[in-house]
Design a protein around this nucleic acid. Sequence first.
DNA 1: ATGCAAATGATAACGATTATCATTTGCATC
DNA 2: GATGCAAATGATAATCGTTATCATTTGCAT
Lengths: 159, 159
Amino acid sequence: MRQPEHLKIVGLKSTTPRLKILSLFESSQEHHLSAEDVYKLLMASGDDVGLATVYRVLTQFEQAGLLVRNYFEGGKSVFELNQGKHHDHIVCMQCGHVEEFYDATIEARQEKVAIERRFSIRDHSLYIYADCTNKQCPHKDLRADPMPTNKIGAAQSLD
Amino acid sequence: MRQPEHLKIVGLKSTTPRLKILSLFESSQEHHLSAEDVYKLLMASGDDVGLATVYRVLTQFEQAGLLVRNYFEGGKSVFELNQGKHHDHIVCMQCGHVEEFYDATIEARQEKVAIERRFSIRDHSLYIYADCTNKQCPHKDLRADPMPTNKIGAAQSLD
DNA sequence: ATGCAAATGATAACGATTATCATTTGCATC
DNA sequence: GATGCAAATGATAATCGTTATCATTTGCAT
């Protein structure tokens, strides 16, 4: 299930629900999971954790820097392990598959835009919604619910 | 209140609530309005329009191309008149002031990223969350509620 | 083993939005 | 200008993701 060290380090008591949720992110095939996804996966594997706890723990993990929260369109948050390196996302609207990318030029231009307008960047979100046409969506099974009819932007904390 | 031509053109019957809502966007100081904002502004000016109608009409206007919907963080949609020219947003997290910007390089790089990954872009959203420090937030009064504690990305349709 | 603050879980509450459905309205036709 | 009917409206219930409440349980320092 996972050693409690990581949790202790970030100042969180190592409880059963927390350890289960953290190891789920580390073992899951799809690493972009919503609270609902986490809850269902835990139930499916026989681990009963309350939905309220799932939401609480995800938020705590985000604040502790273990997870990064993304605000996908449709109004629901999706979490992923914080790999330390900032990236943006491109989402297939057909199958919901998510790919990550990092473009130094885009990052730099954002800084430029902010400076020109005398803003100091705290955060930014960039989501590209697209169709992975050439691949004929070979990712259809990776995600529970394909993708909301309705798409939404997402937030991305800077490193 | 506004002439009904525009509505007819996009295939919508010109009703009183629709005309009021459209002219509100054209006359309002702040041109990024949520459904709640629209509802309250209408009430304040003595025009009673049901909240359900506001939501319906905003969605119809979006589909008709009259308005553009933005998914700000916090999960609420914000609408603005469709000026024809695509732009992204930079939002002050202190006062909620929104400025628009367009950066050709960023747009181009997004295309590049998508092509490299064999995706075809349908839509994208880019929101920069920042503090307009140097301006000492001179925009505090423009918006009803400053800005949700919690921030969200936003969607932007490509021209 | 004990104690207590912290964490959990069931459930109610919440905010934004959509669905339902009876009533009203725009507007084409007479 | 009166009529008819599909379309639009508005009050309200319902939904969805999420947060708040609060009694019970648990981690862990003693």
